[in-house]
């Protein structure tokens, strides 16, 4: 895929910007990650599909940290006990610390996937991880409908044109399908 414009057009951080990749590429990285973590935000509440997609990923052994008020969506589906609420600032602060013990008490993560988080807040947290979670490296990627230059890898922008939300959903399904764990 080619060069993309950041979803917030002036959000150009510097020489290192995220690569726009196909869902299957991120899927393969998740497949080979030792300890992946799915971080979801409140925008997943706009459609049940996104909550259900997150639950599908969880079934593949990817724990979920629910930020913002996204926890509500999981509780409504009877899945609240299986996700952990975290404030995104708090969570990112932990992720940059190699000694953090993680959601399950066994250690930090090596691959972090952002989904459904308010764009500019997610961008800042991705920036923190890019700049400060480097030893050991924590790869942070975005599977939102926005291009995130602060992520290591990101989907492209999905515009508001007819059918593109469906296209985005299709991308998430392809991602889930491609994860072999």
């Amino acid at each position: 895929m080619g060069v993309e414009i950041p979803f917030d057009v002036a959000n150009i951080p510097g020489p290192e910007v995220g690569e726009v990749v196909a869902p299957e590429v991120i899927g393969s990285f998740i497949s080979s990650a030792k300890r992946p973590l799915l971080v979801v935000g409140s925008e997943i509440l706009r459609d049940d599909f996104f909550v259900e997609t997150a639950m599908e990923l969880a079934k593949k052994g990817i724990p979920i940290a629910a930020t913002g008020h996204s926890l509500r969506g999981f509780v409504e589906k009877g899945y609240g006990e299986k996700v952990s609420y975290y404030n995104l600032h708090e969570l990112t602060n932990c992720l940059r610390d190699p000694s953090w013990r993680g959601l399950d008490g066994t250690g930090n993560y090596d691959f972090v996937i952002f989904l459904g988080i308010v764009y500019y807040y997610a961008s800042q947290m991705l920036s923190c991880l890019k700049n400060f979670a480097t030893d050991p490296l924590v790869r942070a990627v975005s599977i939102d409908r926005y291009y995130h230059p602060q992520a290591r890898m990101s989907f492209a922008n999905v515009s508001a044109r007819d059918g593109e939300e469906e296209e985005y959903k299709e991308m998430l399904l392809r991602l889930a399908e491609s994860i072999k764990r």
Binding site: N93, M125, S127, K130, N131
Partner: peptide, 25 residues
């Protein structure tokens, strides 16, 4: 309450040595 940084820009442009790329600390 340890300072937590989330750079909005990865570069420093304040002097003529720069721009300096500070990405990755």
């Amino acid at each position: 309450y340890k300072p937590f940084y989330a750079p909005l820009c990865d570069m420093c442009c304040l002097c003529t040595y720069g721009k300096c790329d500070l990405t990755g600390n």
